[in-house]
């Protein structure tokens, strides 16, 4: 089993060597007063199609082609290499025309979304693994409603057995909205534990006014608040992992389309260079 470090070293070395050869080739073209833009354009377009092919491979898992992990490795290093290739293609200058600028923006957005995705896919799983419970994304709404029911039942039981309504009132005012509703979009963008901390602090404060029966229920509520927060954290992080891919893929296809049009236009107006 190859270690991740040795795999990274091998792939990075290969990428650097291939890029060095490409740079050398473009320089050679320049020294001989030739045009490298068509050559780099072809390579760039081919790499973009290759990068997009990974999604097709994912959709056809039964086919006997290389493993998804190998594809991802190739996808990452080829994509990183396209940054240099893009620079060589545009001769390290800022694009000017509408079509060029559109391609540059689309390429930049796709590239950056890929880099962000790479960072997230390498950091978020470890954060999720630190949460005490592992949950499947699609089950989160069901688990949330179960928690809400359990909290409600526990409080009703406490009210029935103790005859006191202190905890019941606190629950209906502060905790029920928390258990019943979803988090705001801000939480999904930047999950934090502020609400959990605040609710737990309020519950702790409330504890001094509770009867013994209510205190027992209060302990249950402590656990349920924590669990709900863990579920929300899972929901936010897993949503983020899904959404970035959606965005990345959403940018890929317009980029391919515009880049193909650009290639066609370049051929139509090649001015006899070819």
């Amino acid at each position: 089993m190859k270690s991740f470090v040795s795999r990274r070293l091998y792939s990075a070395t290969l990428m650097v060597v291939v890029l060095a050869l490409l740079v050398y080739w473009t320089l050679q073209q320049k020294w001989t007063l030739g045009h490298s833009s068509f050559g780099t354009g072809y390579v760039l377009l081919a790499t973009l199609f290759f990068l997009a092919l990974y999604n097709i491979r994912k959709k056809l898992p039964v086919l006997p082609w290389a493993s998804s992990s190998d594809w991802l490795q190739a996808h990452v290093y080829v994509a990183l290499g396209t940054a240099v290739l893009f620079g060589l293609h545009v001769d390290w200058r800022l694009p000017t025309g509408f079509l060029e600028s559109t391609i540059a923006v689309l390429y930049g957005a796709t590239f950056v979304s890929g880099i962000v995705g790479l960072i997230w896919t390498r950091t978020i799983p470890a954060k999720l693994a630190r949460v005490s419970e592992e949950v499947i994304y699609e089950r989160i709404p069901m688990l949330r409603s179960q928690l809400c029911e359990r909290a409600q039942e526990a409080v009703l039981e406490a009210v029935r057995s103790s005859g006191a309504t202190t905890l019941g009132e606190f629950y209906s005012e502060r905790l029920h909205p928390y258990f019943e509703s979803s988090r705001r979009i801000g939480y999904f963008v930047r999950p934090n534990s502020r609400l959990r901390r605040r609710l737990l602090a309020e519950l702790t404060e409330m504890n001094r006014y509770l009867s013994p029966d209510e205190r027992e229920t209060c302990e249950i509520l402590f656990a349920l608040v924590r669990r709900r927060d863990d579920l929300d954290f899972h929901a936010a992080m897993q949503w983020r992992l899904k959404m970035w891919l959606f965005l990345h893929l959403g940018l890929t296809y317009p980029l391919l389309a515009v880049a193909s049009v650009h290639g066609l236009v370049a051929h139509l107006f090649d001015g006899g260079v070819l």
Partner: peptide, 18 residues
Amino acid sequence: DLDRCTRCDDCVRACAAT
């Protein structure tokens, strides 16, 4: 390995496809 799993469910989809 939950430190690496992005919960993308590609494994589940691949299993279903086969």
